[in-house]
């Protein structure tokens, strides 16, 4: 009744580079007497009844909470064949909403990537007073309610009595109830994502290679482009994809700052809500389907990258 599986932790043993004394173990200790005699140390995992029970509970939970509901959305989208989708894609207002969503997301991702890389480098490579506080504050956007985000931006950039908004709007620059506001809100909510992926990787890579490059005469830009960037490549992509998914999907914050003006400041997520509440269930499902598709693609890409990121 008990199944047996084998797990190769030879690689783990080999990867154990630093013992507590800082002694390099891998190459020295595990060198075979003759090459080719290397035996993988496999550890057998006995499958008990508990294993099957846990597996069942975990899978059932995920099935009823995520898998089945999501598949139903897909099913409902195609309940009337392709007509819901084609109706959606031939509606010019809908296309405008989709376009807006994509444009906003791309801008947000670019801004957050630039800021993210810069911030990550500053946090890891330099020392300055208040660093820990800054690092903690950067995490704030992840824990703040999207409605609060929207409110905060309205209070500062709102045209009527925003702290800066009045001045901005007087000079013809409308933020709230216009696209710039949506962009700001989207940047806000996805801000930490790239930084949080880069910081651990930068720490692990260490500064030696960069110092070596500098000593060979490379300036900051060259060092970054040729040495740092390749090292953080996978973590960066990972962070970018995550923030893309987040940016495309923002709802609450965008609802507050957009005013939901049809054709102008309506995003895909706002469109889902509107269509559903206006009894255009087909349209709501179709839009949702597109968003699900994007989200799943992002996750699949990310899960393919994760092993590459880990191996670094």
């Amino acid at each position: 009744m008990d199944e047996e599986t084998y797990e190769d932790d030879a690689q783990r043993d080999l990867d154990r580079e630093h013992g507590p004394e800082g002694v390099r173990l891998a190459g020295v200790l595990y060198e075979p007497a003759e090459p080719g005699e290397r035996a993988p140390r496999r550890r057998r995992k006995k499958k008990t009844r508990a294993t099957y029970l846990f597996r069942f509970i975990a899978l059932a939970y995920l099935f009823f909470l995520v898998a089945w509901p999501v598949s139903l959305v897909v099913k409902n989208t195609f309940a009337n064949g392709l007509s819901d989708l084609t109706d959606l894609l031939s509606d010019p207002d809908a296309i405008k909403a989709l376009k807006l969503t994509i444009v906003v997301a791309i801008i947000a991702v670019i801004v957050n990537t630039i800021f993210g890389v810069g911030m990550a480098l500053l946090l890891v490579r330099y020392q300055f007073p208040g660093k820990r506080l800054l690092s903690a504050l950067i995490d704030v956007p992840l824990s703040v309610s999207p409605i609060v985000v929207g409110l905060a931006l309205v209070l500062v950039y709102g045209g009527r009595d925003g702290w800066f908004g009045v001045w901005l709007e007087d000079h013809g620059f409308q933020v709230i109830f216009a696209t710039p506001g949506i962009v700001l809100a989207t940047i806000f909510v996805a801000l930490p994502l790239v930084i949080r992926e880069l910081v651990p990787v930068l720490e692990e890579i260490g500064i030696e290679q960069e110092l070596a490059a500098r000593s060979l005469g490379a300036n900051a830009v060259q060092t970054f482009r040729r040495i740092t960037l390749p090292g953080i490549k996978w973590a960066l992509i990972y962070g970018v994809v995550l923030s893309l998914a987040r940016s495309l999907g923002e709802f609450g914050a965008v609802k507050v700052v957009s005013g939901n003006v049809l054709g102008q400041t309506r995003t895909a997520t706002l469109m889902v809500e509107e269509k559903y509440l206006n009894f255009d269930k087909g349209g709501a499902y179709a839009t949702s389907f597109l968003l699900v598709l994007v989200a799943v693609s992002c996750i699949v890409v990310v899960s393919l990258i994760r092993p590459k990121e880990k191996r670094k």
Partner: peptide, 24 residues
């Protein structure tokens, strides 16, 4: 399973509502 676990993080919240509405 790994994809299922990350899905709620990547999915827009309004879509999450619709998703749950389909089953519940």
């Amino acid at each position: 399973v790994e994809v299922l676990i990350d899905l709620p993080f990547a999915l827009p919240t309004i879509v999450a509502g619709l998703v749950l509405l389909s089953l519940y």
